[in-house]
Amino acid sequence: MAKRAAPEVNAGSMADIAFLLLIFFLVTTTIEKDKGLLRSLPPIDDTEVEPPIIRQKNLFTVNINRNNQLLVEEKEIPISELRQAAIDFLDNGGGTNPEGESCDYCKGKRLEDSSDHPDKAIISMKHDRETTYEKYIDVQNELVAAYNFLREREAERLYKKYYPNADKVFTAMLEEKEKNQFSKDEVLNERIETVKLLFPMKLSEAEPEK
């Protein structure tokens, strides 16, 4: 008997099956990209070291009370002014850093009663237990924004030549680092560190009183 060809399987319904699966995955997909504010907590230190004396003028105090009101340097201000106040404080450069160098890149007013040097300037934040988290994040955001603004400015001053088309130089540098995360670029890392060191983030948080 002659060999008979196997009858062809009807593939007409394949598309239907595939569509069904496709729609299931379409519905269940959530392409989410979480973003947020990255902060480091201080490690627990049990050693009894006497805390270094910080002069009042190098300390920028931010208090939030239980009614979400903001007290900055003993004055009540709206949150919209916090960013500029923090920038003015950090950028003041009225004196010298611990090594005795004065801040030659600061563009502040160099007031006597504000911070000496970005190295010494500390922002101290304190909140009540009943402050809402939303307000807390708002304040954190403004303070981080102040640092980012100043770092952006310095990055632009130092490295604009390498990124002539970038709108924000520091952001462009960080993006490049992100892109090349599998091939380490020492020069780029060093530049980012340089910018960060010009305005080191010294943001301390006091524990709320019980």
């Binding site: 504010l37 902060r39 201080p42 009943e130 994040i137 948080e205």
Partner: peptide, 26 residues
């Protein structure tokens, strides 16, 4: 709407666990 006090309690526990990098998702 959470109180920030709860958040600082969590942070205190994280310090004890030596997990020091936190990200406030926003």
């Amino acid at each position: 709407e959470t109180n920030a006090g709860l958040v600082s309690d969590i942070k205190q526990e994280l310090r004890k666990a030596n997990a020091l990098k936190v990200m406030y998702i926003a």
